[in-house]
Design a protein around this nucleic acid. Structure first.
Lengths: 136, 136
DNA sequence: TTTGGTGCAAACTCTTTGCAGGGTC
DNA sequence: GACCCTGCAAAGAGTTTGCACCAAA
């Protein structure tokens, strides 16, 4: 869990209530929310926040590496505040996305890919999507 | 390489020039094209095809399992006609997506995940996204 | 004749952008 | 005051939908 105020400062970004709220919304919601869910959440506390601000903030955060975008089926953009290497479980339609932490898998994959040496490509990150059915 | 006419028939879909064209566009372009690229490609041959038709067709194909959607950063929907288990190399901004075939990796992953038994989840498919830099 | 499927255009959703106002160093 | 950030509203891009027409079984 990072301190968002410090993180903003480190990146030369002003610490504003909106930015803090956006970051907190993502961590609290922790369902890899989209911009709408984030905005709704924040509006409970700051009813005046503008969607434009939310989108701008999210984009800034992604650029600075404070959060990351999660790959979806292309319908909406979704965000993740957890930057520790982890993977995701997807429902078939990709509406539901949950974390899958597996250090053993991480180890194996980075080692495997390092050895494999993909031609004309420099690997920066490896993400596993496990698609299937959630059983509740 | 499947025979699209047969495939359509098997799925109770009428064999129309548009449907065949959409399928061929995806295989020919083979850059995991979006609807726009597919439409542009088809228009060279059938200038009258409607975008609505392309979208409808793509959705139908995905539902029937004739093609699949590729996960993106949420900007646009992109499609893949190759249903054989394979993975993808992504540029950081996810604009460029290339195939990564690796049977050894497939073997390992399906075996690994099978053994691992993720609670409350039935695995149907595993996809690895390798994010990094293409060197041309 | 009934049932899809297509073209066209309008509608809708999600995201980006321009601009005026406000806060902060 | 210069700069950055925000709210608001409009614009833009991508996708979906409704409807009339057409073609094939």
């Amino acid at each position: 869990m990072i301190n968002i105020r410090e993180k903003l400062a480190q990146n030369g970004l002003k610490v504003t209530p909106q930015r803090v709220a956006v970051y907190e919304a993502i961590t609290r919601l922790n369902n890899h929310p989209n911009a709408e869910a984030i905005t709704d959440y924040i509006k409970r506390k700051y009813p005046n926040i503008a969607v434009g601000t939310v989108y701008n903030t999210l984009e800034t955060f992604v650029q600075k590496g404070i959060i990351s975008r999660i790959k979806t089926n292309g319908d909406v953009m979704r965000y993740d505040a957890d930057l520790n290497g982890h993977h995701h479980l997807y429902s078939r339609d990709a509406r539901r996305i949950e974390d899958y932490h597996d250090e053993e898998l991480n180890q194996f994959l980075s080692e495997y890919i390092r050895k494999k040496q993909i031609p004309n490509f420099t690997v920066e990150d490896i993400n596993v999507q496990i698609v299937g059915k959630f059983i509740d």
